[in-house]
């Protein structure tokens, strides 16, 4: 009797530490933030002392042109980064999908940029973009072209380039893995039927890789909203608001402008946006599984 009791409690005992820590340090803070977003709250007050102002913070942000600008920058950044990285990453995977000697060494070098601290990545690129001592402008000088004001006029583009440098390998490695696990029989059949390399890619390889590609793109998209340190070090959000993504604006509102309530409301907007994306990803996964199950059932019926 007592062993049965102990057995039933086992899963809860295994779960308990994780559940407690996540409840204290993730769930409770998130609830606390929602609560705080309805208050006029500055850092020197405790939340109890802050005045309740209802939806004021949300309405203020809804009409705040700076917030719109930030949101626009964030969406543009995320869109360009994910699109360009997907195109380059998948393209390279298709191009390099053959037997290469020393492939593991190559992969090691490709994942290096992802492992290095974002702060350091920002540092390297800030140096390379530097108007006078930077690598790029020196190179342009030496071949006689005019200099480019990388972190001034073209700040957002420069920031996007740095992110592409850091994260394209992620997509490259994932799509290479997907490509190499494709069923060989389908490709073989296509080649025997005389399909050209292009036809193989468009009609067979890409459709078969699609599930993995979409999950990868969504993961990357969600991560693109988390980028902060690289941009903070490179431009500090400037010049003006041209590279001030939402995450950076939240941290500035909290620390510089000392308006925790507004920052909390802004965090909530960002969270809702991400929640929609996540739900989309989850629904897609379910749909994918259902479709796979249906296809399997069909195949079994036929055989």
């Amino acid at each position: 009797m007592r062993t049965a009791m102990a057995n039933r409690l086992t899963p809860y005992m295994f779960m308990a530490p994780a559940a407690i820590i996540m409840a204290i340090a993730l769930m409770y803070p998130l609830g606390y933030m929602v609560w705080g977003s309805f208050r006029d709250w500055n850092p020197s007050q405790t939340i109890g002392e802050a005045e309740f102002v209802g939806l004021k913070n949300y309405i203020f942000l809804w009409n705040d042109p700076n917030f719109h600008e930030s949101l626009g920058v964030t969406l543009r950044f995320a869109f360009f980064v994910v699109t360009i990285e997907m195109v380059i990453g998948v393209g390279l995977a298709l191009l390099l999908d053959r037997e290469i000697r020393g492939i593991s060494l190559l992969r090691t070098m490709f994942i290096l940029p992802m492992m290095i601290a974002p702060v350091v990545v920002g540092l390297m690129w800030r140096y390379m973009y530097h108007p006078t001592v930077g690598t790029f402008n020196r190179f342009l000088d030496s071949i006689g072209l005019p200099r480019v004001d990388w972190l001034g006029d073209h700040a957002l583009t420069s920031v996007i380039i740095a992110d592409i440098w850091q994260w394209t390998p992620f997509i490259f490695i994932l799509s290479l893995a997907a490509l190499q696990s494709l069923p060989r029989s389908a490709l073989e059949a296509a080649r025997i039927d005389g399909a050209t390399a292009w036809q193989q890619i468009i009609h067979i390889k890409l459709p078969l890789m699609m599930p993995v590609l979409i999950v990868t793109a969504l993961l990357r998209l969600i991560d693109a909203f988390k980028v902060l340190e690289v941009i903070l070090v490179m431009t500090e959000g400037g010049p003006g608001l041209s590279t001030e993504i939402l995450a950076l604006r939240i941290s500035r509102t909290a620390t510089e402008f000392r308006e925790l309530g507004v920052a909390a409301a802004m965090s909530n907007y960002l969270l809702i946006l991400l929640l929609l994306l996540t739900v989309g990803m989850f629904a897609f996964n379910r749909w994918q599984e259902a479709r796979a199950a249906r296809l399997n059932a069909l195949v079994e019926e036929e055989s």
Binding site: M22, L30, M33, A263, S267, L275
Partner: peptide, 23 residues
């Protein structure tokens, strides 16, 4: 667990700052 994975650190900044300092 899956949902929480999507929360960016910046979103945690405000509540964590408040809680860790006051509560």
């Amino acid at each position: 667990t899956l949902m929480v994975r999507m929360v960016p650190p910046a979103v945690l900044l405000v509540p964590v700052f408040g809680l860790w300092n006051n509560e």
